[in-house]
Write a protein that binds this DNA or RNA. Structure first.
Length: 360
DNA sequence: CGCTTTTGACCGGCGC
DNA sequence: GCGCCGGTCAAAAGCG
């Protein structure tokens, strides 16, 4: 979700009540309408309600406009991002191949057709896995740097709440993964599982899954890289049969009731981090996204399933952008400071309106 | 039989 | 240089 770095989610939106606010005594702003209502005791209740409604409508329409603007900004960013990715892939395609890991073993030269071709074409030393003649040390480090930056920019971290009793590290995200390792790390007694995308042979995406050290019912999955293939339509073993859309937010229904548990999706792109609070069920249930209300994970453990990738395809989907916008709106409206600012803005506008009309 | 998972060994990076 | 640690390999076992 790199585009969030370009989206200013601060409250300094185009709605600018500041000149008005400066005229408003501070205690009125902080009083959250109570002081305001006291001042208006002598006013007719109908006028007050009508004005408030009018103002509310105006703010709503403004909010709608801002939402549309945000959508446009997101779309523009995604278009630019895709262009940049295309450009980078054409520029670094050879470099990426030639800088494949230094620990290439027998299996990789067999299983990875890309590297295999490269080996054939360039007489690469299979034991060392590196074409020492084809790239000078400067170029090599440069290639490596570019590759690392490229990968680094596509790191996605997803955390989700699961049943604490569920010891598996299975994260259902619609892709096909092959586990290739498990390790107990120093800072976390829970083992970390390493997965590789097994849908396409050359897909470079890797996934690390580990339970949170603070709350072991939370599973943290770290995705690295970008899928070079569409999401697999093949259902995962025992999983739901319609798992194929990457942009889906799955809410698993267990025993006929939609469960909603605290769950945050933290998408990190080595820069700004946005945390999507998926706690509020209505923000999920009423969404016009492909959802799966009738499926239960094989273990029955994952009460909410969050699917995300760093692929441009996913980010480009309008439903995802709509989802993101709504999540932003939800997060904003949940924020007390945002509420205070909104209240101040509305009261300021009311004051301004009343000053202009001379009514109070 | 083929695919996936498990698991001990191995490798490279990094800090000291 | 050495040891620690995270990441990966690959043989063996498991599974459908």
């Amino acid at each position: 979700m790199e585009f969030t770095s370009l989206v200013d989610t601060s409250l300094d939106l185009s709605f600018r009540p500041r000149p008005v606010l400066e005229k408003v005594p501070k205690q009125e702003v902080q009083s959250d309408f109570t002081g305001l209502s006291r001042e208006k005791e002598n006013m007719g209740v109908k006028n007050e309600a009508g004005d408030l409604l009018e103002e509310l409508n105006r703010v709503s329409s403004e909010n709608k406009k801002l939402t549309e603007m945000l959508t446009v900004v997101c779309e523009n960013y995604n278009a630019l991002r895709n262009q940049m990715m295309e450009y980078m892939s054409t520029q670094n395609g050879v470099a990426e191949d030639s800088s494949a890991g230094s620990r290439k073993r027998k299996a990789e030269s067999i299983s990875n057709p890309i590297n295999n071709n490269y080996n054939n074409n360039n007489n690469m030393d299979v034991v060392h896995g590196r074409s020492s003649e084809s790239c000078s040390s400067d170029e090599e480090s440069c290639c490596k740097k570019l590759r690392e930056e490229h990968i680094k920019a596509k790191v996605t971290i997803v955390s989700m709440k699961t049943d604490a009793s569920d010891t598996s590290l299975i994260v259902k995200d619609g892709y096909q993964w092959r586990k290739y390792g498990q390790k107990v790390t120093r800072d976390n007694p829970c083992p970390r599982a390493y997965f590789r995308c097994s849908f396409a042979p050359g897909c470079p995406v890797k996934k690390k899954v580990q339970r949170s050290v603070e709350d072991q019912s939370i599973v943290v999955a770290t995705y690295e890289g970008e899928h070079n293939h569409p999401q697999t339509s093949k259902p995962e073993s025992g999983a739901s049969t319609n798992t194929s859309t990457a942009s889906r937010l799955n809410v698993t229904t267990i025993a006929g009731t939609t469960t909603s548990v605290p769950c945050s999706t933290t998408l990190n792109s080595s820069g700004p981090t946005i945390t999507l609070d998926l706690t509020a069920p209505k923000t999920v249930e009423k969404r016009d996204m492909k959802m799966n209300h009738s499926t239960t994970s094989p273990t029955g453990a994952n009460s909410i399933r969050t699917t995300t990738t760093t692929g441009g395809e996913y980010q480009n989907r309008p439903e995802f952008q709509q989802f993101l916008i709504e999540q932003m709106a939800t997060s904003l409206t949940k924020d007390p400071s945002f509420k205070a600012a909104l209240a101040a803005a509305i009261s300021g506008k009311i004051l301004q309106h009343n000053n202009q009309t001379g009514r109070w």
